[in-house]
Each structure stands twice: as C-alpha cells, then as structure tokens.
Amino acid sequence: MDCFVFEAAGKHLGIEARYIYRIADEARVVPVPLLPSCHVGVFYYRGDLFDVIDAGQLLGNEARISNEPPYVILLKWDQKSLGLIPERIVGMTWVEEENSHGMIFTKEGLAIHMMIPENIWKRLSELPYGH
C-alpha cells in the first residue's frame, strides 16, 4: 500500500495514503485556549475545520520544535478530520503489509511505525481538556 512517511519524536511514522487529504503549506493555525499542549490550534481549509496536532508532542516530546510556517498533514476519515505537524516530511513510499506490531521495514532498512488516524483520535480524546 502507499504510505506517507514523516518524522516526529525521533521516530519514522507512516500513515496510509488513503487517509491523507492534503499536505497544506503556509497553513495559518490559530491557537485555542484550554487545550492540551500538543494541540497547536485550528485550521480552516476549504470549508473544513481541522484540529492541528504537533505530532512530536503527541508522541512524547516536551516542547514543540517550531517550523515556521508549518506543513500540516491533513487527514480525513469516517466523518472526522485532523491535522498533524511533523518535524520533517520524508515522502511517499510503497510498502508491503505491516506486521502485527504496526511496524514496517522498507527495503532501505528504515523502520516505520504505522499510525491509524482513529487511534490518534482516541489518544487525543484521553487527554485533559478545559479548566
């Protein structure tokens, strides 16, 4: 399957191409109060509002590694949507099926952790919100 690969929190991460809606550059992400620190803000694109998450912070980084202006990976699945800010974009790659731990190995020997948008959403839902 086609897989989009990027780096965050010292790892290589991959998301199946079918979930990728667009890679937005020059994205103006607007911060929102009372949200977990990995939530960078909201981004309005073509009629949809995306919650934009710093991938690194979601996966455990302490602070945001700022890149101005950020590339945002816009994901859409199942009536939901999300934006992810990577530390570095690697690109598209074709991989065979993943193993049971959600890891892929490319022929160059790169280890890629596969992410499923629904799981990212679940993890976000478990964080504290509000006052």
């Binding site: 929102v32 109060p33 009372l34 949200l35 939530h39 909201v42 309005y44 509002l49 919650d51 976000l124 839902s125 919100y129 509000g130 006052h131």
Partner: peptide
C-alpha cells in the same frame, strides 16, 4: 462553524 469534538470538551 461548530467548534468540533475536541474544542467542545472545554465547554467554553
């Protein structure tokens, strides 16, 4: 626009 699930949790 409606704020969406995550922002709605702040109830603000």
């Amino acid at each position: 626009m409606p704020s969406g699930e995550l922002l709605a949790r702040t109830e603000s």
